[in-house]
């Protein structure tokens, strides 16, 4: 019974979403072929005037059977460097996706909240402790790294930071996996030696 409520609610939300449109505010829902109403994709634009500006971030949205009484499960599938989002799994630490969820909220409000999270990170309630530490201690490095990830993974415009790209290429040439190298370098404030040490271990 609750199952049918979930499907009816999602269908109405999607119809409403198409009617209102999301492009203007930079959020989109992609149902694919429409065969699975409980699992689909979403996309949000990196907000302007942030390190994510111009980036396009894909999300995986899963609707639980007791939706809207339980929150939707949402994670980033495009890698992102953000204190409240895991750089490994894309899991999001956002109160409205767990304790503060209210049945009256919709996918639209949730996507807008995630977009707002990109605009204002909350390092005191981190999902990714390493990113949060960098955000607090070495803000310049964090900004450059987040921008690099945006350009590298989310096709944000602009040329890649040359120093970072050199380091990345150098280590990748040793035969390591690209994403692993990028993660390790980012975690170690782009110190090649420390990043290599980490990769060897």
């Amino acid at each position: 019974m609750a199952d049918s409520i979930a499907i009816a609610r999602v269908q109405k939300e999607l119809k409403d979403f198409q009617k209102k449109g999301g492009d203007l505010v930079g959020i989109r829902l992609d149902l694919g072929d429409g065969s699975d109403m409980m699992k689909f994709k979403g996309e949000i634009d990196g907000p302007p005037d942030t390190v994510y500006a111009g980036g396009k971030y894909k999300l995986l949205i899963e609707i639980p059977p007791n939706y809207p009484f339980s929150p939707p499960k949402i994670r980033f599938t495009t890698p992102i460097w953000h204190p409240n989002i895991s750089s490994v799994t894309g899991a999001i630490c956002l109160d409205i996706l767990s304790t503060k969820w209210a049945a009256a909220m919709t996918l639209r409000t949730v996507l807008l909240s995630i977009q707002a999270l990109l605009e204002s990170p909350e390092p005191d309630d981190p999902q990714d402790a390493v990113v949060a530490a960098q955000f607090n201690k070495n803000r310049a490095c964090w900004e450059a790294t987040a921008k690099f990830w945006a350009q590298y993974h989310a096709s944000a415009p602009g040329a890649l930071n040359a120093t970072y790209k050199d380091s990345l290429d150098k280590v990748v040439a040793m035969g390591f996996d690209k994403q692993k190298v990028l993660a390790s370098l980012s975690q170690h404030d782009w110190n090649t030696e420390n990043a290599l040490q980490f990769l060897f271990n």
Binding site: A2, I5, N66, F69, S70, A103, A104
Partner: peptide
């Protein structure tokens, strides 16, 4: 905040 009885029931059961 007004909601229908069915929704209140499902919500309460879930919580």
């Amino acid at each position: 905040h007004e909601f229908c009885l069915d929704c209140w029931r499902y919500h309460t059961r879930t919580r």
